[in-house]
């Protein structure tokens, strides 16, 4: 089974760009526009990696993380934060919630892929 990657960001621009980055690899891209949708997709699809924005309407990235970590079936899902916000306080909060990496937008494709490849197998499409 190819890995599933869930992108949670209120910006369609970011979701589209992330899809493009991972398109050359065997993986299934999933999308959600806020934390609430993200939790629903995560519960249904059990992604292997979540790429999560911080500031979002309805439910922000921190609340989604807290809910993920409280769910026994999802609590070990690796998460990379992808955000414009470089505040050390926020980085400390998400680190305490087990976030594996923190990337400041705009992301560089190769750096994001390198970080993702540490968490999931990324095999080029044939």
């Amino acid at each position: 089974m190819p890995p599933k990657i869930l992108s949670v960001d209120d910006s369609k621009t970011i979701r589209v760009l992330l899809g493009r980055v991972f398109r050359p690899f065997e993986c299934e891209m999933l999308e959600a526009a806020n934390g609430e949708e993200g939790l629903a997709v995560a519960a249904r699809e059990r992604p292997d990696l979540i790429i999560l924005d911080y500031n979002m309407p309805v439910m922000d990235g921190i609340a989604m993380l807290q809910n993920l970590r409280a769910n026994p079936e999802l609590k070990r899902t690796p998460v990379i934060m992808l955000t414009a916000d470089s505040s050390p306080e926020k980085i400390a909060i998400v680190a305490r919630l087990g976030v594996r990496d923190y990337i400041i937008k705009p992301f560089q494709d190769d750096k994001l892929l390198a970080k993702a490849a540490r968490l999931i197998p990324l095999v080029p499409r044939a």
Binding site: S11, T13, N55, P57, A84, D85, S87, P88, K105
Partner: peptide, 26 residues
């Protein structure tokens, strides 16, 4: 909106690097 958000994040980093925590609006 997303480009503006990224640019504002870079500008906010100026305050953050000077020890002043701050938040970005949507």
């Amino acid at each position: 909106g997303e480009i503006c958000n990224m640019l504002a994040g870079r500008v906010a980093a100026h305050w953050i690097s000077n020890g002043k925590p701050c938040l970005l609006s949507p």
